[in-house]
Design a protein around this nucleic acid. Structure first.
Length: 695
RNA sequence: GGGCGCGUAGCUCAGCUGGUUAGAGCGCACGGUUCACAUCCGUGAGGUCUGCGGUUCAAAUCCGCGCGUGCCCACCA
């Protein structure tokens, strides 16, 4: 039972992973009987278009550390894997494929197109799960769920109809964010703002009684979007603005359209911005829409769903794309003398979070979920400490959104997703509507399954900060509403992985690093250890490969120390050592006592810090203990002392170390364990007993 | 505009509720080992802990302001 001279992760990892899968221990039902108390984590649903990036690698490691640690402690552990159908995203990817053949989804028709996405899903949908396996994740693959599978679809239907009967879902024509490329509405959270250089155009709106410009009988409005003026239905000023007091109630004639519109007063207008007078376009601006509701203004839609000007616009602009219409309108305004001045202006432009296209705001018939009561449930859950954020500061982000939340636009005009379960409806639901149900739907809800009873509520949710509102908040209120219990106790928000320059890793920018490449180069254990080493506090991680190298060297150290102990322990070759030897305290040397004390201290702090999600700190503790205390000091000391006790201690400390290290570097520790002559050996290190304090 | 972070050795970062000569990994210099170590061990150089001010017997650690930097939110058109 000797260990090879060097550790070769490539030869070991696949074999060990298959061995674990065969053991059945990823499945809580197949764990030894003593594993009683449930401990469950549901993984953040990766979407079917996804590939593993460093953020996933970090999160996969974190979740697996927690699960393996609890499994060693004798918990009945379950890590639930799943894939999200990712409505807009998946549809976008497949549409892009079609485009290469010169086709659109409309050429194929709904049925055919959905078939295509399913085909695509079968082909690529499991890639990310395979990559999680490579990371060593001990998910119970027999419980893998897909958010569009039959049972999950039932859960979504049930949830929708429940809200519908409760009158929390309603239909209405509202101004929504609209992507003209994806041809669908988007929720507030699906918008990404991008800073762009633009202009602030100052346009003269002449007073109607004197429709001419010479005597300065006009009011100047400032706008970043002159083309929307065709849909203006008022000009608004602040009620306290003395400059315009006399004009309120009068009318102006809208240039180009030559419609008469009123000058009104509304408190939302900031007198300090621009000229203090703002054009009001209720159909294409949210603030303006709200003004129109307050003031009873009508709404004229001039931009249609394809991003072109419609028949409500003057004939010369009809059919033009928004950007072209803008050019022409600016030109016309200048020619006619309506343009006062133009300033450079940098502002945030709303973009579709998937295709990146600039969004339009247009009035549209959509389904909404009332969120006031649900938001209160979500707030209460955290306020009463039923759900705790780690680090706590993220509560602020959470509360802030929930306190200002608008009703949730849950309908999407795409084809890939859950059909709205009402007669005659052709829209599908927002992907996040289904993922909000994940912690209980993945366990079988609405059926009253054994899993649901055993594992709900789950214990920890570990995820990235950018979906605190998009996902975490919605899971919390869904759980509170449907299960009458919050879906998890602890929410761990892990650090964001940046590149060395401090920029977010991004495939499109070419700044991403593929963890699979690192695994190829250094092995999974080294990659896990290296990335977790940097996961301290909530500080974002500037990824450097040096840490992975360090992880590899550490693996080498663990391997060689094990070889040494195996070689030294003569008796080990003949008979199994007791995992928990009776150590005679009176015969111990100072070095013996010291290492045992250091081990106890390490066990204690590892437990304590894992409870607090201090993963990086634990990695350092383990590293320091094993390399410095055990290898550099104790092993060197044992070369000078010779006794049976020493051998027992060597063996005992090594075994305990392997157990402690196993959650962090599962493969190498399992491989070594398999070669150790341990008395009452378990089938896997994975289900060994977690070390206990000696004193 | 509001909010949240960050700024500690050449690089990436630890340093919890303030208290002995400020730590790790990588890198660097010197020496040793190669009978656990595709290496490892030992020793060492290197930091006015972003700047200024304050609280304190005592501050990298708490407070204020400035500078630099990153992120999130927002109905300044």
């Amino acid at each position: 039972m000797e260990l090879s001279k060097t550790y070769n992760p490539k030869q070991v990892e696949n074999r060990i992973y298959r061995f674990w899968e065969k053991s059945g221990y990823f499945n809580p039902d197949k764990l030894p009987k003593r594993h009683k108390k449930p401990y469950c984590i549901v993984i953040p649903l990766p979407n079917i278009t996804g590939a593993l990036h460093m953020g996933h690698a970090l999160n996969a490691t974190i979740q697996d550390i927690l699960i393996r640690w609890k499994r060693l402690q004798g918990y009945k552990t379950l890590l639930v894997p799943g894939i999200d159908h990712a409505g807009i995203v998946a549809q976008y990817v497949v549409e892009k494929e079609l485009k290469k053949q010169g086709l659109t989804r409309f050429d194929l028709g709904r049925e055919k197109f959905i078939e295509k996405i399913w085909e695509w899903k079968e082909k690529y949908g499991n890639i990310i799960l395979d990559q999680l396996k490579k990371m060593g994740s001990s998910c119970d693959w027999s419980r893998t769920r897909f958010t569009l599978d039959k049972e999950y679809t039932e859960a979504v239907k049930k949830a929708f109809l429940y809200y519908y009967k409760k009158h929390w879902i309603y239909r209405g024509k509202r101004v929504v964010n609209w992507c003209v490329r994806c041809r669908t509405s988007l929720s507030d959270l699906e918008i990404e703002y991008k800073e762009e250089k633009g202009h602030l155009w100052y346009i003269r709106y002449p007073l109607s009684k004197t429709y001419h410009l010479k005597t300065k009988t006009y009011i100047v409005v400032a706008t970043t979007r002159p083309e929307t003026m065709l849909g203006d239905t008022a000009v608004a000023v602040n009620p306290n603005d003395k400059r315009y007091k006399k004009l309120v109630g009068q009318k102006v004639v809208l240039p180009l359209s030559r419609r008469e519109i009123p000058i009104i007063a509304d408190r939302i207008v900031d007198p300090k911005f621009g000229t203090g007078a703002v054009k009001v376009t209720p159909s294409h601006d949210l603030t303006d829409y709200e003004i129109s509701l307050r003031q009873g203004l009508k709404s004229i839609q001039v931009i249609d769903e394809t991003g072109r000007l419609n028949e409500q616009a003057p004939r010369t602009y009809q059919g033009l794309k928004v950007t072209d219409a803008r050019e022409k309108i600016i030109q016309d305004l200048e020619n006619l003398g309506f343009m006062e001045k133009i300033e450079d202006y940098i502002h945030q432009i709303p973009k579709c979070y998937r295709c990146g296209k600039t969004l339009e705001l247009i009035p549209s018939q959509q389904w909404f979920l009332k969120t006031d009561k649900l938001a209160k449930l979500a707030i209460k859950a955290v306020k009463t400490n039923k759900v705790r954020f780690h680090p706590k500061k993220w509560e602020k982000v959470y509360f802030k959104w929930l306190k200002n939340v608008r009703d949730w636009c849950i309908s999407r005009q795409i084809w890939w997703g859950h059909r709205i379960p009402l007669k005659g409806e052709i829209d599908v639901l927002d992907t996040w509507f289904s993922s909000a149900l994940w912690p209980f739907a993945c366990l079988g809800w609405p059926k009253k399954t054994k899993d649901l009873k055993t594992f709900y509520p789950t214990n920890v949710l570990s995820t990235a900060r950018d979906i605190i509102n998009l996902w975490v908040g919605r899971m919390i209120f869904s759980g509170a509403e449907f299960m009458k219990k919050e879906p998890f106790q602890d929410v761990y928000i892990h650090a964001t992985v940046l590149n060395k320059e401090g920029k977010r890793m991004s495939k499109s920018l070419g700044t991403g690093i593929d963890p699979i490449d690192l695994i190829e180069k250094y092995g999974t254990d080294a990659t896990r250890f290296g990335i977790i080493w940097q996961a301290t506090g909530s500080q974002d991680i500037r990824f450097v490969e040096d840490n992975i190298k360090m992880g590899k060297k550490f693996c080498n150290k663990v391997w060689n120390a094990s070889r040494f102990v195996l070689g030294q322990t003569e008796s080990a070759k003949r008979k199994a050592q007791s995992a928990k030897p009776q150590l005679k305290t009176q015969n111990l040397t100072n070095a013996d006592k010291k290492i045992l004390k250091a081990l106890d201290k390490t066990i204690k702090s590892v437990d304590k810090d894992l409870e607090k999600f201090q993963f990086g700190r634990v990695a350092r503790e383990l590293y320091g203990f094993f390399w410095r205390d055990f290898c550099d000091v104790y092993i060197e000391e044992t070369k000078k002392q010779d006794s049976k006790e020493t051998q027992k201690i060597l063996f005992y400390v090594l075994l305990s170390s392997l157990e402690l290290l196993h959650p962090f570097m599962p493969f190498i520790t399992e491989e070594i364990y398999q070669k150790l002559p341990v008395k009452n050996k378990k089938k896997c290190l994975m289900v060994e007993d977690w070390p206990v304090l000696k004193n």
